[in-house]
Design a protein around this nucleic acid. Structure first.
Lengths: 117, 117
DNA sequence: AGTCTGTATTGACGTTCGTTGATGCAAGGT
DNA sequence: ACCTTGCATCAACGAACGTCAATACAGACT
């Protein structure tokens, strides 16, 4: 979703009035970003040197229960922003930059790379 | 909020783990973008040639009641994304690009203008 | 003054969201 | 086999959200 086969090429906010289905797709991702806990989780993963973070490092960083953190990570994953893998006892998460970059391009009002000017 | 006095300079998602208060500010704006109706409204305003759109042009574009549209416009305004002015009988809305551009910079994972590398 | 049009606000309703305790599952260590 | 640890899922609750009908407000025109 959101970017299959040249969807990311479609212009940003300011080039056309934005149809229903594309608005719905984008809204899903923005909704996933619309929570401070999820933003901190995403940033915590994105800013990590190796690119991967174990859940066991994220959970104690919040005053929240472990199921709550797990739930937020699931929402971020369903939004296509992160992915994870189990390695032994631990589960590691990393960022999928594709959707993030498309979102950034969508929000940019001043068209930097004007294709058709 | 979100950008008073050199806040926009602070790096994006991937430069540091993102503190509580900044995460809360960003989450408010992303939450405002996390609804398809609001995204369409914002895009409708941003893509307009003159930069201004009358409410009377936006309301009939949706299968929603007039109070609902008014409510969504209010949320977008409270998020600092748009502003409005009454001119005679009609009210006109326009986009405030500042917050949008800061959001785009925040989401960009590939640092284009690496200050400290 | 009165009326009409355009927009915002209020109050209410059903739905979704964020959170938790309890439970389940996977893998490692005895 | 058994227990222990790390993480996910379930069921339930209160809070917030999206929507609408009804109402209020602002301006223009008689």
């Amino acid at each position: 979703m959101l970017g299959q086969d040249g969807d990311g090429c479609c212009g940003g906010l300011a080039v056309a009035p934005l149809g229903d289905e594309r608005a719905a797709e984008l809204a899903k991702v923005f909704k996933a970003l619309g929570d401070p806990v999820r933003l901190r989780l995403l940033s915590m993963i994105a800013s990590r040197e190796g690119g991967e973070v174990c859940v066991c490092e994220m959970t104690p960083a919040f005053d929240l229960s472990q199921p709550t953190i797990s739930h937020h990570l699931k929402l971020l994953r369903q939004a296509g922003l992160i992915d994870c893998e189990r390695r032994g006892t631990w589960v590691y998460y990393w960022v999928l930059p594709g959707v993030l970059d498309r979102l950034a391009a969508f929000l940019t009002t001043s068209q930097t790379a004007g294709a058709v000017a």
